[in-house]
Design a protein around this nucleic acid. Structure first.
Length: 794
DNA sequence: ATTGTTACCTAC
DNA sequence: AGAGGTAGGTAACAAT
């Protein structure tokens, strides 16, 4: 809800403020403490009336308990960090203050835990300069300037190092300028409003006590209030005209009708230019729980329709707008049609389409495009993401749909790390010029999930199936029976083993079946079809092995560490499988002329055409990533010609990763808390399912509705946590991840592959595995395998 | 006729 | 600017 970036303020100021006031967000500048539910926030600016100076701030949009709304401007200085050469902090600070006089408002020297620092486990901290600014624009200017400086300094250090390697002596250093002492920038790319939210621990959708005195704003979280504020929610959908077999085009098509529902009351505005006659109020109640009474308004033209809708929105002031694919269709269409009639939608209701982002947003109101949710979190297959299929799957009714071709005729859309005081690494950048066996790597990755198809055919629980069982495996099951039953009771059932009164009875019944299977291993009978799966496999692998990107260490890290002593047990070595594909061309040929470097030198002397055919510029003027892109293009052509093939067959290689067991565990701690919270939500979901059953039995419709809502809420929360939980694994290989590690991802999947293959070894002996995929096995077990038993307790 | 590449979609 | 990952199937098409 708060995903928006800085918007340059400037000219639209007064107009926007009056619009905000008109839509209920009058600034709250003084007076009694207020209670507010934070609807949204975005970056903004304010002007000091005495000095005329502009400062960046965050506008916070609140909803009161009575439904009224207000806004406060929270002053917060944007900042980022800079690292200097050792012990040069003070000099560099003074230098920066001079160099950026009037741009930097303040510099502080602070200590942060830097996991990249060698031997940081000994307690070593790194000093950073915290550069603070009055405005985001100033931050951006200084950041861009310093990024170039850091890049240049790095190149010079590399060159000096190379000189030392070749000549064996240090190059006589030029007199050091303080500017050369700046070696790294950190956290400069954290968006301003995100920085504000992290640092002040503020989130949308929570209640706060808000007090304003003078220019200070104090906001305090009210953890006792859980229910959300009464925000008006407007769900809307437009119908438009269209040409036969064409998609509606806002250039010439028009809005035929707009239907919307505000807090359960339906409305429909009809454009009589397209609809043959006046439409009367109507009811659309597809299911009793989705009651819909629609008030219909018939207006003569499209302009009247738009005016009527905007006026209604200004009156109701919805805090949340809901659409299905509105980012792509409804909002842009409305905006264009309004513009066609000389109306700016942004000035009416604050919403503006950002074609770059493909999103439509307002500063003080949220837009939920349900299609985005359906695409990512609905678990519906791609072919069932249309509104009709989604309605059926998620809401449980079949909407009546009019063929679009008929429509017009018929009538005419973690902050844990911050608390750990750890300096964030910069975003990972792929090394584009990496070699393997003297060949340029086209791509490299790791072996992921393990899949095996073991049997084909039709397996049904009513088709007799042949089994050749392994008696020793059944003997093993019999031997472990006590252990396994006690685990089921104590760990899984959370019950006291002594409280079970029929333990021996159950045990004997199971044993009898197992013995019979052991003694008659070759048999034909109806099967039990099972999908056995490892619960939350990847997160649990991460947890049991304390896997996290900063824990992946090499000998170099260990050598520098104080804990590196003989007999140490803080290093765990785990295997993974690397896979890479290289271009066919060799880095260097000893006897032949054409090779990678040859092509590189060749292309470096050329002019590259850019944009049109007329303009061209020297290759060396392009950026580094562009260089490699062009170079790879050329290499492809060369390989195709010379080797009849661009890339060689993939190469795999078992590698070993060192995992430090002492590293600050902030990442695995976060995974654990997400896993445990998911268990909590799963438990609450189960509890409420029980309450729902009770309510249904009692027939109390209010209690049924309440329980139904809570079941949906906790199921949504557990599913959301599942999605996030899996992302802790996926994140480490994501482009631009701050905590990136191919080794870690590889270790996770390889460890998982071993687990599932081990499980298969057992299944092969007690039944027949059919298919194996990553964390689960489809199998058939003999029908006489002991299946359901009930322990009775005191 | 065979092989390689890309697009698309699903399972996990 | 921001974008979870790999495994593996089919279809269509281009290149050899």
């Amino acid at each position: 809800m708060d995903r928006r970036r800085q918007r340059s303020s400037g000219c639209g100021w007064g107009r926007r403020n009056s619009l905000e006031s008109r839509l209920g967000f009058a600034p709250y500048t003084d007076g009694e403490r207020r209670l507010g539910w934070l609807l949204s926030f975005s970056s903004s600016s304010w002007e000091d009336e005495d000095t005329g100076k502009i400062y960046s701030c965050v506008d916070l949009y609140f909803v009161s308990q009575d439904g009224s709304t207000f806004k406060v401007k929270y002053k917060f200085r944007p900042y980022f960090y800079a690292a200097t050469k050792d012990k040069m902090e003070l000099e560099v600070e003074a230098y920066l203050r001079r160099r950026y006089e009037g741009e930097i408002s303040d510099v502080e020297i602070i200590e942060k835990e830097d996991l990249d620092l060698k031997n940081h486990l000994s307690g070593l901290k790194r000093k950073y300069l915290k550069l603070q600014f009055d405005t985001v624009q100033q931050l951006m200017r200084v950041k861009n300037d310093l990024l170039h400086v850091v890049e240049k300094n790095e190149e010079e250090r590399d060159a000096a190092e190379a000189f030392e390697t070749i000549h064996g002596v240090k190059r006589t250093e030029r007199t050091q300028d303080y500017i050369n002492c700046i070696i790294d920038l950190r956290e400069y790319d954290v968006p301003y409003h995100v920085r504000f939210a992290i640092d002040n621990d503020v989130r949308s959708g929570l209640w706060y006590d808000v007090s304003v005195s003078g220019s200070d704003v104090l906001i305090q979280r009210r953890e006792d209030l859980l229910q959300r504020a009464e925000v008006h929610v407007c769900a809307f959908d437009i119908e438009t005209t269209k040409l036969p077999l064409k998609f509606p085009d806002a250039e010439y098509d028009s809005v035929m009708m707009i239907s919307y529902m505000i807090d359960g009351q339906g409305y429909l505005i009809i454009n009589r230019e397209c609809v043959g006659e006046d439409i009367e109020d109507l009811e659309y109640t597809p299911k009793p729980e989705f009651e819909g009474y629609f008030r219909v308004k018939n207006v003569p033209t499209e302009l009247d329709l738009l005016k009527a809708w905007f006026a209604h929105m200004q009156e109701v002031k919805p805090g949340i707008y809901v659409t299905y694919n509105g980012d792509f269709f409804d909002w842009p269409f409305l905006e264009k049609r309004a513009a066609h009639h000389g109306i700016k939608m942004s000035e009416e209701i604050g919403f503006q389409c950002d074609n770059n982002q493909g999103e439509c947003r307002a500063k003080f109101s949220c837009h939920l495009d349900c299609f985005a949710w359906v695409k990512r979190d609905s678990y519906l297959p791609q072919g069932s993401q249309g509104l009709k299929a989604v309605t059926k799957a998620k809401l449980g009714y079949n909407p009546l749909e009019v063929n679009p071709e008929d429509m017009v005729r018929f009538a005419m859309e973690q902050p844990q790390a911050f608390k750990a005081r750890i300096i964030c690494p910069n975003k990972h950048q792929a090394d584009l010029e990496k070699f393997y066996n003297n060949r340029l790597l086209e791509s490299e990755t790791y072996i992921g999930g393990h899949v095996e198809c073991l049997e084909t055919g039709v397996f049904r629980s009513d088709l007799p199936t042949k089994f050749q069982l392994d008696p020793s495996a059944y003997e093993q099951l019999i031997g472990n029976l006590d252990r396994d039953l006690q685990y089921a009771i104590a760990v899984e059932g959370k019950l006291d083993v002594d409280s079970v009164i029929n333990y021996d009875e159950v045990k004997d019944a199971i044993k009898e079946k197992l013995v019979s299977l052991r003694d008659n291993p070759i048999r034909e009978e109806r099967p039990l079809i099972y999908h056995l799966d490892v619960a939350a496999m990847y997160p649990n692998i991460i947890l049991t092995n304390r896997l996290q990107p900063p824990s992946i260490v090499t000998d170099v890290d260990c050598t520098a560490c104080d804990f590196n002593r003989p007999g140490k047990n803080c290093l765990r070595k785990l295997e993974w499988v690397w896979r890479g594909e290289t271009y066919m061309a060799k880095k260097k040929y000893i006897l032949q002329i054409i090779d990678y470097y040859h092509i590189k030198r060749q292309i470096e002397s050329e002019l590259i055409q850019s944009g049109g055919t007329t303009s061209s510029k020297p290759f060396l003027d392009l950026s580094k990533p562009e260089h490699l892109l062009k170079l790879k293009d050329r290499l492809k052509k060369y390989c195709q010609k010379a080797h009849k093939r661009v890339v060689d067959k993939p190469i795999t290689e078992v590698r070993e990763a060192g995992i430090c067991m002492r590293e600050n565990s902030f990442y695995v701690d976060t995974v654990r808390s997400f896993r445990d919270r998911r268990y909590e939500y799963k438990g609450l979901n189960k509890t409420w399912k029980g309450k729902l059953a009770e309510a249904k039995a009692s027939g109390n419709s209010i209690k049924i509705q309440e329980a139904q809502d809570m079941v949906v809420l906790y199921d949504s929360l557990q599913l959301a946590h599942k999605c996030i939980l899996n992302s802790f694994y996926g994140y480490v290989m994501r482009k631009g991840a701050r905590w990136y590690s191919m080794e870690m991802a590889g270790v996770v999947t390889y460890t998982g592959a071993k687990i599932i293959q081990n499980a298969r070894l057992l299944v092969e002996k007690i039944g027949r595995p059919l298919e194996l995929d990553t964390d689960g096995i489809w199998c058939v077990l003999p029908g006489s395998f002991p299946e359901n038993f009930t322990f009775k307790t005191k």
